[in-house]
Design a protein around this nucleic acid. Sequence first.
DNA 1: AGATGAATTCAACGTGGTTGAATAGCCCCC
DNA 2: GGGGGCTATTCAACCACGTTGAATTCATCT
Lengths: 196, 196
Amino acid sequence: METSKTGRRPGTPQTREAILEAAVASFVESGYAATTIRGVARAADVDPALVMHFFGSKDGLFDAALRAAMPVQELAVVLEGDVSSLGARLTRRYLEVWESPDTGPRIRAIVGSIASTPTAAQIMRDFMTGELAGPLAKSLPGDRPERRAILAAAQLMGMAFARYLLAVEPMASMTTDELVISVGPSVQRYLTGDLG
Amino acid sequence: METSKTGRRPGTPQTREAILEAAVASFVESGYAATTIRGVARAADVDPALVMHFFGSKDGLFDAALRAAMPVQELAVVLEGDVSSLGARLTRRYLEVWESPDTGPRIRAIVGSIASTPTAAQIMRDFMTGELAGPLAKSLPGDRPERRAILAAAQLMGMAFARYLLAVEPMASMTTDELVISVGPSVQRYLTGDLG
DNA sequence: AGATGAATTCAACGTGGTTGAATAGCCCCC
DNA sequence: GGGGGCTATTCAACCACGTTGAATTCATCT
């Protein structure tokens, strides 16, 4: 007899994971706009409506695909150690996250999609406050630690934005060490210096 | 007789400008994704195909609408005066551009659309190098002026990104003066300080 | 065995960007 | 002063996309 087309497939369904995997790949490689639900469905060998069934909307898919994949990856590990050299350590660690082959592309996909999707801005906001500035503020000795932390985070964002998204020269071709030496002290000033 | 539907309209055609105006308004108010060629055409009381005829594609329309509208607006005016306090002046001027009711929304529209459209990144790159870092580098006394200028520009971008696009706290609710006092010295360090 | 619920597909709708052909007004040249 | 060519303008259509609703099949619980 014919293999049935519609209805539930036999066997244990891990289709949801397959869809997510295909979605992450597409969002990372092609960005939000160029990623289509139909394309993801095709890649996962599945009907487009099934993607909707699981994730509700294209935005929901983006959310599920990239929020889970955000690097909770031990950015806080650099907080241990003396705070007088935290600026350099933090700058270096941050650069590593943007350059790592698995975390970097995802971050770029999220940051690049800000304003096209409402979720992207929310993910980024959650990351900056919850993941970066939050823990950072807790380990700062001076006054107004939240302000210090967010100023440092903003400086790091700007550096990454210019270097990895815009790839503007001569920022893009500086070495990591040069960046740490150049930017680190500014970060350090936000963390422990005089803010007026 | 009937007024003709198709063919050229009588009178001097300044339709192109009307389309551009409608496009700027829509891009600024609604962003790139939510702006539709059909909607712009409707607002300009014109057929969608005419928009294509003039601007080639949605991306071309975006380019024409917002590149021309970018603030060549005297960012270089702050370059006059002593370079020892340039950091503060530049920071203040930059904030003004992002906060001005006519330039601010346009910049936000462009920056927010990066990666959805290839043009947005190009516009932003041109702005950072040609408009900001370029003239800045020429008026710097120290070594590696291009690097100094781009580091300062990146710092300013990060501040604006966190404050105006993400609106992350406590960055969004700081006053302009507080920002100038906090961020100005970091910019100053990039311009004239020791970079290692 | 029957019922319930979840997984899966199909077909369709509406909208959006884009295209190709067609028409109508303007201007230049003989 | 009439004809040819350029440009502005519209119309109709195409195709891909996000999304929806009903239908079907499988797994599981009672």
